[in-house]
Design a protein around this nucleic acid. Structure first.
Length: 309
DNA sequence: AAGACGAAAGTGGTTGA
DNA sequence: TCAACAACTTTCGTCTT
């Protein structure tokens, strides 16, 4: 069940019910209507040029930038490199002494890049970041943030004596939480050499020493993802969302694994909306056991006075 | 036969002395 | 640093659909 977004005077409107409130899942580029649960796909940002050109000359004349500046390239893609061709700007061959000077300059430039330990470290880290993010399907936004966090860690000498891989994975995990991308610590740990435990340590250090404010992972963010993997219908999704917000108001969620809460809410919502999924199916996706889903759902049903039977 | 249930024992992390 | 503790897991026997 998916639709495309309609726009009314620049305001995004649900094509199904006209609702204007959406929950966004940046990692999948999907939004879910909060009132009817319709999943809409949308390109949130148009990254193309804002002008049009009809001929090659027009295009060349209007293009005013080079490659986009990116935090994902060690020198942000902004540095000038000395080219290999031994010609001057007008295309004439260089004379002997200029030529020798160019050789020397190029040599030093390469050395200063390759031999600066910080840049070398960063190159390794960013390559690893690329690998992790593409394996986990994480958006560029989150990747940029991770790279920013890692740079900060590097400049504060936090990376010294710790593994590059741990720190970059940790940075990515934090970035995911900041962007409310529902990726769990386990998923990152599975993807890297590190254990969940070690990764957790890196994450805590990053947060502490860089004084980052990181939103607490919330059960709400997991809903769209579970919903799409289980093909839940829209009503179930909305129902699950409202169960979670009720639970939050009553303070039942504190200290509990968000996966367990989300799973339980979906299980209950499934029964209420006649859109049942087994505890096992749900448990697998939110990375908890059936027992935990059971315990959470019993608790939710009791404290919120919902009788799913 | 699959799914749900609940008891019991074990694990890893947090907290407070 | 250690013990107590809550949340969660694993395992397993039993009940329900």
């Amino acid at each position: 069940m998916a639709g495309s977004i309609n726009t009314e005077n620049g305001v995004v409107v649900c094509p199904e019910c006209g609702g204007k409130d959406f929950q966004h899942d940046a990692s999948r580029g999907e939004s879910t209507c909060s009132s009817c649960g319709l999943v809409v796909s949308a390109q949130h940002i148009d990254t193309g040029a804002e002008w049009r050109a009809f001929t090659r000359e027009e295009k060349d004349a209007r293009a005013r930038t080079g490659a986009p500046m990116s935090l994902l390239i060690p020198d942000k893609g902004l540095s000038t490199t000395i080219g290999l061709s031994m010609k001057d700007a007008a295309g004439r061959a260089l004379n002997g002494s200029t030529r020798a000077a160019m050789y020397r300059m190029r040599k030093w430039q390469i050395r200063s890049i390759a031999h600066s330990s910080e840049i070398r470290n960063l190159s390794i880290a960013l390559r690893e970041l690329d690998r992790l993010a593409s394996n986990l399907g994480i958006s560029r936004d989150a990747k940029d943030t991770a790279s920013f966090i890692y740079r900060k860690a590097l400049s504060k000498r936090l990376v010294r004596g710790r593994s590059i891989e741990g720190m970059i994975s940790g940075a990515l995990y934090i970035a995911c939480r900041m962007h409310r991308v529902p990726r769990q610590l386990d998923e990152l740990a599975d993807e890297s050499i590190l254990s969940r435990r070690e990764l957790g340590k890196c994450v805590r250090q990053l947060i502490r020493y860089l004084d980052l404010k990181v939103p607490i992972p919330s059960a709400t963010n997991l809903i769209p993802r579970v919903a799409s993997e289980l093909n839940l219908n829209g009503k179930t999704v909305v129902r699950a969302g409202s169960i979670i917000s009720q639970a939050k108001e009553r303070g039942i969620t504190a200290g509990k694994d968000p996966g367990g809460i989300a799973g339980a809410a979906i299980y209950i919502a499934g029964i209420l909306e006649d859109d049942r999924r087994t505890q096992r199916e749900i448990a697998e996706i939110v990375n908890v056991t059936e027992v935990t889903i059971r315990n959470r759902y019993k608790e939710l049903a009791r404290k919120l006075a919902i009788s799913p039977m």
